[in-house]
Design a protein around this nucleic acid. Structure first.
Lengths: 346, 346
DNA sequence: TTGAAAGCGCTAACAA
DNA sequence: TTGTTAGCGCTTTCAA
């Protein structure tokens, strides 16, 4: 394994001191130098195929030019686009990303955060935050640059980039109402995640606004955002509130699980029960019956969070808003129809 | 931002030399030390919440405990499970991964490889290799630990972990034959990727084995493994070889595109044309008509490649086989049916 | 405009 | 069994 060229090698080859080489190679610091020596040094560097040792740079400057990206689970299809969005901003800025999967486990989250800090990351984008997670708060307070994405911490001064949860829920809620639904159940997400809680609260608020009695708008909370939980909770809804004509799910995977549950019960979506989702994850359009859902802008979310993190790392934290809410839009497909003309509503 | 505790701090606190602290904290090297001083030092370290500075460790030892994972595109759903498989092995071994997306562009691939090397990664798992990519070969020859995954380099001594492409193609081919298909077209992948080439060759070999005239088994090659290319190539097949009763696609996304093309032409899968895929990507089971495909073991692939890389990095390269071929299996769903009883075949 | 020297935090000869 | 010393490759004062 041929040893890498170092500054010292170039210094020797071009007959100047290492510190001069260091300066000559950095456009910022080469200003005071003679054009002649700058050229000579750069020529030698190119000739010898010099690439700076970033580890040494990091030790000296205390900057690794690396960020940590915490996600719940990369196999969950909504996260890859977010990661690409982050990369699109960070890579040109010279940063690499270490991606870790927390599986939404508090223990793993804490341990992985520590690992990232041990590795000296310059900042963290956290898309897996639990609403109250002391370790991340402590890290932020001790000076680590952090922004949360998709989710927010409770009562926090850690900047966050989230989607318009309230607006999104209101969009599907109003759609269902316009179709004539009176008995809408909410298949809620875990309330220890801000997404779960915000959507749930938005649902309740929408009910209140439109004068729907909470008794006619049951809420069942999933413990995870996945198909199995969607199925389980949908069954619970069907059992406890058989007069339900629509299920407003807190995300697409829960909605997909709900549709499976309906099918298992011999019911059809949308004929018997309408279902809506949230996220508009990839390939959703290809899955029957075509879920009506809320589209979020995953790429944009990643880019925005990355830009904010860059600003914070450059000590321009004052320029980044505590709260950034990204617009969402309604995607109508085929999972919503008028309530069937039987049961209590007729 | 409170300064991190260093060895020096602990040395001062516990009244011994830094090198003693360094030894005491490493179970390997603490053997010669008094139990007494080891305890004292470790207590102080815990007390002061010491976490080793891995950058300094890296500079000194020339090991970053970081690997690079090169991927074509993380938003392509077959890669996240691979990444998790890699992580499952590397994380317990103390390694972090820097994931980069090459978008299958030669220029990006070369540049990103350089970036990873600049960052001093200890090894690379390359799932995005083009068949002949000089930069990765050069890197491997110069001593960097590399294994390729999913794809192999041409004429290489870089260890690779791939799926049983030949066996998989043979499985779907035989299935189609058993259903009575005589006119099978191959929707091939890009031939600059080993997957594309191996599957194509396997298809040709299968034709030869079963006495099918290549003229009755047209091959159309996609430039990318995506739905758009699948659609485009399927249209070409339908136009040039209208007597085709089955399309054997080189992967699921091409197959999905082919099914769209059929639909656009007013044809139905499987009634008019049978279609098969490869990979069995996530959520495929939920997309109608239910693609018959080859299941590959993405998690396992990632784990195996990671274990091989670990061995190579530990200079036990002799123990890792140049070639590892993972078993695949047939997943029958609803996209294959007997050829319709019209046209040239009756 | 360039050189000298120090030092980031750690490990590893070598001494004692 | 522990301490001393050097040095990984780089940047950054401080001098000249």
């Amino acid at each position: 394994m041929a040893k890498r060229t170092t500054l010292k090698d170039i210094a020797k080859a071009s007959g100047v001191h290492v510190s001069t080489v260091s300066r000559a190679l950095d456009p910022q610091r080469s200003l005071p130098l003679t054009a002649e020596v700058v050229d000579k040094v750069r020529a030698a560097a190119k000739e010898m195929d010099y690439h700076p040792n970033r580890v040494a740079y990091s030790l000296r400057t205390n900057r690794t030019m690396t960020i940590g990206v915490m996600i719940p689970d990369i196999t969950n299809m909504i996260f890859p686009p977010i990661v690409r969005g982050i990369e699109r901003v960070m890579e040109p800025a010279g940063y690499a990303s270490i991606i870790v999967n927390t599986d939404s486990q508090r223990g793993r989250e804490t341990a992985l955060l520590q690992t990232l800090q041990d590795r000296g990351v310059d900042g963290i984008i956290h898309t897996a935050a639990l609403r109250n997670e002391p370790s991340i708060v402590r890290a932020a307070q001790s000076g680590l640059s952090v922004v949360t994405l998709n989710r927010k911490l409770d009562d926090t001064d850690v900047p966050y980039v989230i989607n318009d949860e309230v607006g999104g829920i209101r969009l599907v809620f109003d759609l269902l109402r316009n179709y004539g639904h009176q008995r809408i159940a909410h298949l809620a997400g875990p309330s220890d995640l801000s997404t779960g809680l915000l959507r749930r609260n938005a649902f309740s608020a929408a009910c209140a606004d439109t004068g729907i009695d909470p008794l006619n708008a049951p809420i069942v909370e999933a413990t995870r955002f996945d198909e199995d939980e969607g199925r389980r909770c949908a069954i619970e809804i069907l059992d406890k509130s058989p007069e339900t004509t629509a299920i407003l799910a807190a995300n697409d995977r829960l909605a997909l699980g709900a549709i499976m549950a309906l099918r298992e019960r011999g019911l059809s979506c949308p004929r018997d029960v309408s279902v809506t989702g949230f996220n508009d994850m990839p390939f959703l359009d290809m899955i029957p019956p075509g879920l009506t859902t809320i589209r979020i802008r995953q790429n944009t979310a990643g880019e925005v969070a990355a830009r904010h993190l860059l600003a914070i790392m450059q000590r321009k934290a004052a320029e980044v808003p505590l709260e950034t809410i990204l617009p969402v839009s309604l995607v109508e497909r085929a999972s919503v129809a008028p309530p069937r003309a039987t049961g209590p509503s007729c």
